[in-house]
Design a protein around this nucleic acid. Structure first.
Lengths: 146, 146
DNA sequence: CACAAAGTGGGGAAAAGTGGGGACTATGAG
DNA sequence: CTCATAGTCCCCACTTTTCCCCACTTTGTG
């Protein structure tokens, strides 16, 4: 389980430290790829395995072909240096518009990496916003169950 | 079961003592996150387990992605020091507008943490208000069941 | 009143994060 | 083939944060 938000700096070489709390839950075979809303997503092995339902074949619809290409094409295995950092490739930094600072967010089963501005828009919420969205999702689920 | 209201101080390092009565009911795996109306909520493990239905994947709708990011991003596992205190992160203190004082309230299955002013507004009620709200809830339930 | 339990505050060691130097490799040009 | 350039990776040193421990104060209880 990944919890919490951390603000880390990205140096000139594209390196970011992954918070120690997260790192100790990430065995080899961990993968980083593109995610929705312009973030990067880090998948522990068992989560990545679930995404592999997405396959190319003669039966695959066009949209899934497109998703599969983007998702797997952008993916890389995470390699940590002695200080617990990974290197974000130039592509990945461009996709997520990350320059000097990255927000690293634990979202239950995945880890997401955001740039400064986007995270402020998506992740930070006033109490009013938070309450509204919580009620919205609850309402939606209630409607769905009945 | 968590009952009662306690006023504790928050020191410069963001530490708050959790009342001993509560602490002895909180095993490891307890989580603290944002709650509605600008409070923080402490979830014992079995309560938190219910929130984990919310996961990220290529099938997750946009609203749930947003909620998951805010909720898990703001969450931390509770770690008690030798004195029975937990550390509220800077984010959490900002969200709940907590500075030097926190109100810690047992609300049946969860514990809530409020700032001074908000708790006065939410928690203290005149007999008239209390009566009115009780009637409102009763009415809503009656309408919902029929 | 005395003792025990709970809460408060601060100092210091250990861990985590940050930045840069330098060696090795690969690639491409002269 | 040789050299220059860029990119990667490993290592070391510094800074910042976290958390563990100790001591004091307050509260509650017999």
């Amino acid at each position: 389980m990944f919890l919490g938000t951390y603000r880390h700096s990205v140096d000139a070489k594209g390196r970011v430290a992954i918070p120690a709390r997260f790192r100790e839950q990430l065995p080899t075979g961990t993968v980083i790829s593109k995610g929705a809303e312009g973030c990067l997503q880090v998948y522990p092995p068992q989560e990545w395995a679930q995404e592999q339902g997405l396959r190319l074949g003669s039966m695959t619809p066009a949209e899934e072909r497109r998703l599969a290409r983007m998702m797997f094409g952008a993916a890389r295995e995470c390699e940590f240096d002695g200080q617990g950092r990974i290197v974000l490739s130039a592509d990945q930094r461009q996709y997520a518009a990350i320059t000097n600072v990255a927000w690293i967010v634990g979202v239950n089963n995945l880890i997401e990496i955001w740039n400064d501005e986007q995270w402020r828009r998506i992740g930070e919420a006033t109490p009013e916003e938070y309450t509204r969205i919580q009620d919205q999702v609850a309402e939606r689920r209630r409607a769905h169950n009945t």
